[in-house]
Computed example of a mutant assay.
Amino acid sequence: MTLFQRSPQAMSAEVGADVVALHAERGFAFGMEGVTASVWQLLDRPRSLAEIVAGLRLEYDVEEDQCRDEVGALLADLRDEGLIDEVTE
C-alpha cells in the first residue's frame, strides 16, 4: 500500500484557515486554501489515498470518485513540488 506524508524538507505554517508550505532546499512557497489545506492537515501522519478521501468526505459534500481523482492529482502535484513523499508499506 502506498502512503503519503509530508516531506522532511517541507515546512508549513497556518495562516487563518489557509496553509503556507515552504520547501527548504528549493526556496519556494506553496499557498493552500480550502480543500488543499484540508489535505495538508490530513498529512500530519502517513495516510493512504483512501484515508485522505474518507477524511475529506466527512468535511465536504463530494462524490467519492470525484474526490479520489482530484486528490490523486493534487498529491501528484505536491509530490512533484517535493512537498510530500510516497512511502510503500
Rank of each mutant, 00 (worst) to 15 (best):
V15P: 01
F28M: 05
A54W: 03
P8K: 11
S48D: 07
D80C: 04
V35L: 15
L22M: 05
E81S: 06
R26C: 03
A29Q: 02
V20G: 01
A50V: 14
V19I: 14
V39D: 06
R57S: 15
R45K: 14
E25S: 12
E14S: 11
L56I: 10
Q9R: 10
D44R: 13
F4P: 01
E63T: 07
V20H: 00
R57G: 12
Q66N: 12
L75D: 07
F4K: 03
A17M: 10
E14Y: 05
D44T: 11
P8W: 05
L83Q: 03
S7K: 04
R47L: 09
V87D: 03
L22E: 05
H23E: 13
G31D: 04
D61A: 13
E81T: 00
E33K: 14
S48V: 07
D85V: 09
L42W: 08
V20T: 07
H23L: 04
M11Q: 12
S38T: 14
R68S: 15
E59D: 15
L78T: 04
E63W: 01
L56F: 03
M32F: 01
E51F: 02
V39K: 04
R45M: 09
E63R: 11
L42A: 11
M11G: 07
L56D: 13
E51A: 15
R68H: 13
C67D: 09
G34Y: 00
T36R: 13
L56Q: 12
L58R: 15
V71Q: 12
S38A: 15
A17W: 01
D85H: 04
G31V: 03
A76M: 11
R79D: 08
A37T: 05
Q66T: 15
V39P: 01
A76S: 15
V35H: 09
V15M: 07
D85T: 05
S48G: 12
E33Q: 13
C67F: 01
R57H: 11
V39T: 05
V19G: 02
V15H: 08
A10P: 00
E59R: 15
L74A: 11
E63C: 08
T36K: 14
D77C: 08
G16H: 07
D77Q: 13
M32I: 02
E89I: 11
E51N: 08
V87N: 04
C67N: 03
A24T: 12
R45Y: 06
M32V: 01
A76R: 15
L83V: 02
G34M: 00
L3C: 00
E25G: 09
D85Q: 08
L56K: 06
Q66I: 15
A29K: 01
V19D: 03
R47T: 06
A50P: 03
L42R: 10
P8T: 11
A50L: 12
Q9S: 09
R26H: 10
E51H: 00
R79V: 00
L78C: 02
D44S: 14
S12C: 04
A50D: 15
D44G: 14
F4M: 01
Q9I: 02
W40M: 10
M1A: 09
Q66D: 14
E64K: 13
E33D: 13
R57T: 14
